[in-house]
Every structure is written in structure tokens, then in C-alpha cells.
Design a protein around this nucleic acid. Structure first.
Lengths: 121, 121
DNA sequence: CTGTATCCGATTGGATACTG
DNA sequence: CAGTATCCAATCGGATACAG
């Protein structure tokens, strides 16, 4: 498990917690990947399939993000005995703890798109 | 108000909403800034004060992030008649719509720090 | 198929000095 | 005080080729 950065001096508890979350789940892709795996829990999600279906991500990025998520026990990596080799990625129980957060992202995105329509641009 | 990116083809509604949120509120600082302004709603929050108290942010970044947030009606900018000039930043009603999302970030950060302690590293 | 390695342009973001 | 302008280093991240 990756260690977190130290508290910036004088940082409140909630600020620190936010920073931690942004450090672990921040960036362009991690929450999208978690969402992908959560909503496709019963499927066999291979590297290739994920790259195809998570629109816009490159192999390099997907590798890196999956590695980060695995290090933090949010995602499980399982190599299959196929030929050629395939790898199955699944969400862990711990990874599921991000579900509410993800739901908030979805909810807010909908709020924002609605707001956009209601405002003269 | 900034327009959002178009839907990547074949993108589900929830995925699209997540992308929107990450586009508007993503990055290292925006949610920290909103949190700052929400929790200090009754104070006079000037540029300098914010830069001092949001540990680690540079003037350049704070300028840019505040501008983005203002463009999206999440933050209000108000120039004061002081000498030298000061500027007061406040959260808007719309900005307050991010409060639940921020709370989730705080909650998850606490979960994660606890998890970190419970796992042999 | 699942990555890794390399190249390289684009972007990020700090430091510093400066303007109104 | 509230930014802007400039320089520059570090990182990001795509494309391509390649390895197991």
C-alpha cells in the first residue's frame, strides 16, 4: 500500500482527508476505471477490453493507473491460463468503498449539465 | 459558462456525467478551493489570505483556478474599494452544490487513512 | 494479448520579477 | 494587494516498435 504524503503544517483534518483522496483517486482516469469495474463486476474485463471501452485512454496510461490502483488494493489483477495470456481485472471489496464518491460525481455532472442549459451563455 | 466536451461516442450517461464533473472540478486544487470558501463563508477571503492558507498553491495556479471557477459560476469575485485594492472571493449558491461531493472526498480520505493503518505494509 | 521501452511534443507548474 | 509575464524544468502522455 502506498504511503500518503505528510500533513502540510496547520492543515485541518478535513483538508488533509481531501488531499489524501485526491492523491489516491485524483487525476483523469482512476475514478473512471473504478466506475468501469464496479459496473461490470460480473464480466471478464481484460486489459484490451478496458482500453477499448474506456474511451480515449492509452495503453501506457491504463497500465500505470491500474498499477497504482492495485498497489492501493482497490483493484485486483489476475492472470488467466489462456493462450495468449489474458489478464482479468476486478474491483476489490475495498475498491467498492469508492462507490458513493463515484455516485456523487455522476450526480454532480448531471446537475452541471442541467445548469448549463438553464444559463444564457 | 464554459461549454463541456462532447460525448465520446458510445459513452453511457453516467460515464458522461463523471467526465463532466472531472472536467469542471478535477485537478489538484479546485475542490480544495471550494472547500476553503464553503467553510469560511462568513469571512473576508482575499487572494493573499487564500494563497497563504491553502498550503502549497502558487499565485499562478490560484489565479487560474479561481478564474475557471468563476467562469463556471461556482465562485464570485468582488473587488473592494480599499487601497491597495483587495479582492474578496465568495462561494456562490451554485458553488454550494458541490458540498456533498466534497463531503464524500473527506469521508473517503478518512476511510483510506484508516485502511492504511490496518494493512501491513 | 499484455504489457515495456523509447522518442518526443505538449502541458504543467514553480520561481522570479514586474505592473497597476 | 492582486495579479501578469517570462523563463524554464519536470511531468504527462501519445505513437510506435518491440518482447514474453
Amino acid at each position: 500500500m502506498k504511503t500518503l504524503k505528510n500533513d502540510p503544517p496547520g492543515c485541518s483534518q478535513s483538508l488533509l482527508a481531501m488531499r489524501d483522496t485526491l492523491e489516491v483517486l485524483g487525476g483523469k482516469w482512476k475514478l473512471l476505471i473504478l466506475h468501469y469495474l464496479i459496473t461490470r463486476d460480473h464480466q471478464v474485463n481484460t486489459f484490451k477490453k478496458m482500453q477499448r471501452e474506456i474511451s480515449g485512454i492509452s495503453a501506457k496510461m491504463l497500465t500505470k493507473e491500474l498499477k497504482d490502483l492495485e498497489e492501493n488494493h482497490l483493484v485486483h489483477r489476475e492472470q488467466q491460463n489462456t493462450k495468449p495470456i489474458t489478464v482479468r481485472y476486478t474491483i476489490t471489496d475495498y475498491g467498492r468503498s469508492s462507490e458513493q464518491l463515484i455516485q456523487q460525481l455522476v450526480d454532480w455532472g448531471k446537475i452541471h449539465r442541467a445548469k448549463l442549459l438553464s444559463v444564457d451563455e
